[in-house]
């Protein structure tokens, strides 16, 4: 791994720019190609969620198995703010993201005290606690969730009940979040994160307070997951229990595994593939779970680089 040096070769940046262009073009003309806009908005929300998750697993080496707690909490807070407090959509999303960030700070302070497998188990257990909280708390609506959330007018002007206004907003949020993650990964801060992933004792010996870096990455990942969850709640006008369930935490792991852990574009491709498969299999009962499990097994045993990872290896450039 030579990734510790903060220089990025121009050829690599070139390839990544092309793929980025393809991605933006895909989401711009996707609806024109007959893809259902609500589906594409869901893909963008989950692509942002998966990319935020990848910031931890791919660049710090921390496997969180409870990321649904940030997605779900932000969804509930955003929905509550928009519906009960009458927040405008941008403020509702900020409120949701702030709640997720705060939860990330608390969960992170506890979870980074242990590493590896323990980290995964702790985040999973904390997320399960949030699940039961959301099941019982008065404002979440229990099994029903918060329904009929008004999308409202963005900045008081742009009516988001129009599907194309909503689509454009989601696209901008997704791209902003994606670029923020890209920038973070390639910043000096991101280089320290990679150093911690490769050799934590060495990063410590170089004078870095590794726990503080891990916590910052965790809070950033939680906040961006919150942005994704809040936006998703506005798209579907719904905040429901399935977004805080452990299976959602598993799903975001699967998206990254399919797309490629530690790649830039893997989470986006993974989110698309996993959601498209779910759509396709939705009528077949619990086959979705079985197929997801089978993909997990297959990826771990034979396809650990994921789609984008393999593609990057083929053209010998990191994507």
């Amino acid at each position: 791994m030579s990734a510790v040096l903060p220089t990025v070769k121009s050829a690599e940046v070139g390839a990544q720019r092309i793929v980025f262009g393809v991605m933006v073009a895909f989401f711009l003309i996707g609806p024109a190609l007959g893809m259902y806009p609500v589906f594409l908005m869901k893909v963008m929300c989950f692509a942002l969620f998966a990319a935020a998750f990848n910031l931890l697993i791919g660049f710090v080496g921390l496997l969180s198995f409870g990321h649904a707690m940030f997605l779900g909490t932000a969804g509930y807070v955003c929905a509550h703010a928009a519906k009960v407090w009458g927040f405008t959509p941008e403020l509702a999303i900020v409120a949701g993201a702030a709640a997720a960030g705060l939860l990330g700070l608390i969960a992170g302070l506890l979870a980074i005290r242990r590493q590896g497998i323990y980290f995964a188990m702790i985040t999973l257990a904390l997320a399960q606690m949030i699940f039961f909280f959301c099941l019982q708390a008065p404002f979440t609506g229990g099994e029903d969730g918060i329904q009929a959330v008004p999308r409202g007018k963005l900045l008081g002007v742009l009516d988001l009940s129009d599907v194309w206004n909503m689509y454009g907003t989601v696209l901008i949020i997704f791209l902003a979040g994606f670029l923020l993650i890209y920038r973070t990964v390639h910043s000096p801060f991101g280089q320290v994160l990679k150093a911690i992933r490769e050799n934590e004792p060495r990063a410590t010996s170089l004078g870095y307070n590794t726990n503080r870096y891990k916590l910052m990455a965790f809070v950033l990942s939680a906040t961006l997951s919150g942005v994704a969850g809040a936006t998703n709640a506005l798209v579907f006008q719904l905040a429901a229990l399935n977004s805080v369930h452990w299976s959602m935490s598993g799903e975001v792991v699967l998206m990254n595994l399919v797309g490629g852990l530690g790649t830039i574009f893997g989470p986006v491709v993974g989110a698309f593939v996993v959601l498209a498969m779910e759509n396709y299999l939705a009528t077949l009962g619990f086959w979705v779970t079985i197929v997801q499990g089978a993909i997990f097994v297959l990826c771990v045993l034979a396809f650990r680089r994921g789609i984008i990872g393999e593609l990057g290896r083929l053209i010998r450039k990191p994507l």
Binding site: G250, V253, L257, T289, I290, Q292, G293, A294, I295, F296, V297, C299, V300, L301
Partner: peptide, 8 residues
């Protein structure tokens, strides 16, 4: 991850 997939 493998055992999680098997559980699913």
């Amino acid at each position: 991850l493998l055992t999680f997939g098997l559980a699913l």
